Computed example of a mutant assay.
Amino acid sequence: MDYNSSEAQKEINRIIQNALREDVGDGDHSSLSCIPNTATGKARLLVKDEGILAGVAFAQAVFKAVDPNLKLDIKIKDGSPVKYGDESFYVTGSSQSILKAERLALNAMQRMSAIATKTRAFVDLLEGTKTQILDTRKTTPGIRILEKWAVDIGGGVNHRFGLYDMIMLKDNHIDFAGGVSKAIQKTQKYLKDMNRDLKIVVEARNMDEIKEILTNEGVYRILIDNFNYENTRKAVELIGDQCLTESSGGITLDTALKYAECGVDFISSGSLTHSVYNIDLSLKAVHE
C-alpha cells in the first residue's frame, strides 16, 4: 500500500479522530485548568531506547489534526536507527494543543517503533537470502494500518490488509469446503462469477496436501505451515516454480534463517505485530 495515498490517509485520519474522541472527550481539563489558551511553547520528542524509529509521519498528522498551526521540525525520519538521547522532532505552537496531541502521538510512535525494530531484525537476519518477511492479520483491532505501516518502515512486506484483498484458504476453509481441491475449485468459480481478480494462497498441513494443491491451477502461493526444516526443503523442491512458497508457524528470530535456507520465498510471522515491547519515547517541554 502507498501510505501517502488518499485511501490510506482517510483510514489514518479515521484512527486519529476516533483516538482523540476516546482520549479528549469534552476537553483536556488538565491543560484547560492551568494553561492559558494564548500560551505557546515548544517540545521535543526524546528517544530513551534503541531501535528503528517509526510513526513520525503519523505524529505529524496527529499534531495537524489537533491544531493546523502547530509546526514540526523533523530531525530524524521514519526508518532511521535511533539511540538513547536522540531527538526526533520539535513541535512548536499552542501549549494546550501540544499537550492534547501528546499521548496519541507517543502511544502510536512507541508501538510502531517496536514493530519496525523487530521487523528490521528479521530483514537483517535474512539478508543474503531470497526470503522476505511478511506480516499477518494478527494486528490490534482498529489500528491495523498503523502496524502494517510500521512493518513497511522496518523493511518487511505487507501481506493482505484484510479479508477483502486476497483469498487465503486455511485449514478451516479446506475442512469446511470438503477438501483442498474442492476449496480451490469453489474459490475459482466464485472469483469468476463475481468478476474478481484476487490472488489465491492455500495452506498445506502436510506433503499430501501440497501434492493435491499442485494438481490445481491458479494458486499464487502455498503456505507451508508448521513443517520442520527437512520437510520444508522437500516441499520447496516439490513445488519448484509452479507457485511461490511461504513458511509459517511459530517462526522466530532463532529459526527464521534456517527456514530461509530451505529456499522459501516468504516467511510470515504474526509476532511482528502481536509480540513486541514498546520503544521508550517521551515528549518533553523545551525551556528557552
Rank of each mutant, 00 (worst) to 15 (best):
M1K: 03
E11P: 01
G25V: 07
D26K: 15
D28P: 04
H29N: 08
S31Q: 09
C34K: 12
P36G: 09
T38G: 00
K48D: 11
D49V: 08
G51Q: 07
G55Y: 08
V62G: 01
L72H: 06
I74P: 10
K77A: 15
D78F: 03
S80Y: 05
Y84H: 12
S88Y: 07
S88H: 06
F89P: 00
V91D: 03
K100A: 09
A105H: 03
S113L: 07
A114I: 13
I115D: 09
R120Q: 15
A121M: 14
L125W: 09
E127M: 03
T129L: 02
K130V: 03
K138Q: 05
I143E: 06
K148L: 09
G156P: 00
M166E: 05
L169R: 00
N172W: 03
A177N: 00
Q185F: 04
T187L: 03
V201Q: 15
V201M: 13
M207N: 02
D208L: 11
E209D: 10
E212C: 03
I213W: 02
E217Q: 14
G218A: 12
G218Q: 11
R221I: 14
F227H: 04
V236Y: 01
C243S: 01
G249M: 11
G250E: 07
G263L: 01
S268L: 12
S269I: 09
L272S: 08
L272V: 13
L281P: 04
